[in-house]
């Protein structure tokens, strides 16, 4: 091992599926020594009251995030394309629900 010895357990992000049919949702983070340990800890911390039927744990360092500072320019391309929304189109009332 040439990586420097860690003192703190690495950080993991926890995603929980609350019931079959729903997506996994981020619910928090925790420190654990490895993936299996992280799963056990996540079960004990985030599903003590049957809040989940499935858990994902991901090393926090594995997440790539968009830059908050470039929030405007990064998401800008979508701002002027209102024709992507159904409400952009006027349909005669007599057509009914469409």
């Amino acid at each position: 091992m040439n990586a420097p010895a860690l003192k703190e357990w690495p950080l993991w992000e926890v995603f929980v599926r609350s019931k079959q049919g729903l997506e996994h949702k981020h619910c928090g983070s925790l420190h654990a020594s490895d993936a299996r340990h992280a799963l056990q800890m996540a079960r004990d911390v985030y599903t003590r009251r049957q809040e989940g039927v499935s858990i994902w744990v991901v090393p926090s360092t594995a997440i790539t995030a968009s830059e908050p500072d470039s929030k405007d320019s990064f998401f800008d391309p979508a701002a002027d394309k209102i024709y992507r929304h159904p409400t952009f189109y006027e349909i005669p009332d007599k057509v009914g629900h469409m």
Binding site: M1, A5, L6, W9, A32, S33, D34
Partner: peptide, 14 residues
């Protein structure tokens, strides 16, 4: 316990 868990994780990884 904290040290042993880390040592175990490192060993598994190796």
């Amino acid at each position: 316990v904290r040290e042993a868990a880390l040592a175990h994780a490192r060993k598994q990884q190796q």
